[in-house]
Computed example of a mutant assay.
Amino acid sequence: MTTPDRPHRNFYGRRRGKHLRESQEAYLEQDLAALSPGPVDWDANPDRTPLDLAAIFDGREVWLEVGFGGGEHMVHQAERNPGVGIIGCEPYINGVAMLLGKIRRAGVTNLRVHPGDARDLFDVLPDASIGKAFLLYPDPWPKKKHHRRRFVTSEHLDPLARVLKPGAEFRVATDIPDYVRQTLEEVPRHGFDWLAEGPSDWREPWEDWISTRYEQKALREGRVPHYLTFRRR
């Protein structure tokens, strides 16, 4: 069997903040390994063997959240949808620690956590295996020269389209007008239809929405959230 060549991938952004509380260090040490979806990193899975999602989640439908921040939305969805398995990926370890604390308090068992780059997770997700995906308040990379670092580029959207089932929903929330522009330009080019029929469809949040700390910061600073819904063709 030929082992795939490991691609060179630049990573931009922080992986760790200045300080973790003692309790958060304990969450990472005690809980994180048990919540892994399986061998994702190249050292653990150099052949890029696809994850067995049916085994991980007992045959349930699987959803994906890319960059879950502090984990509020992910836990909220897990509580509302116990019949669904949800995988979240987040390279910022402080956010991972926050999520683990929320998982403990909520007692949800239908979550798995990849503390790393979404691109590595895409490498081991089977084709057409994800029923819904979320991209909520992603890093805006506001400088024009950094727009290629945004998630809504071919590097991320091509593999996302591959792992989503036909008809799967892809939700994007952002408070950055230029991110809205780029999302509406790029996402439809990669096999998605925008589902908006009127202004309320991007001005009002989804019925099952929970406002995150990133959204609350945006509102305090006078920025307007946009809620974009796409469907995989």
Rank of each mutant, 00 (worst) to 15 (best):
L157P: 00
P39D: 11
L136F: 12
K132H: 08
E79H: 02
G71W: 05
S36K: 09
A55P: 08
W206K: 11
Y227G: 05
A78M: 10
G222T: 06
T212C: 12
L228Y: 02
T174V: 10
T109D: 13
A34T: 09
M74N: 06
L99W: 00
P46A: 10
V96C: 08
L160R: 09
Y227M: 13
W42V: 13
P39L: 13
N10P: 12
K165D: 00
V187E: 02
G107D: 14
R189H: 13
K144H: 05
H19N: 06
V113D: 00
D52P: 10
G83P: 12
V108P: 08
R223P: 05
K217Y: 01
G88C: 13
L111M: 03
N10Q: 14
G101A: 13
W63K: 11
R48S: 07
D201V: 11
R233S: 14
L135A: 06
G85D: 10
E79G: 10
L219T: 04
R112D: 06
Y12F: 15
L99N: 02
G67R: 07
W209N: 10
H76K: 04
K102T: 00
P37D: 05
D47R: 15
Q182L: 15
T212Y: 02
P142F: 04
T2Y: 05
K165V: 06
L64S: 03
D178G: 02
K165C: 04
I87P: 11
E215P: 12
E186Q: 15
E207P: 12
L219D: 03
H114I: 01
T183D: 03
V152M: 12
Y12T: 12
G83R: 06
R213L: 05
E185S: 11
S23M: 08
G198M: 07
V40R: 10
K145G: 07
E72A: 11
R80Q: 15
W206D: 14
H73I: 02
C89N: 05
W63D: 10
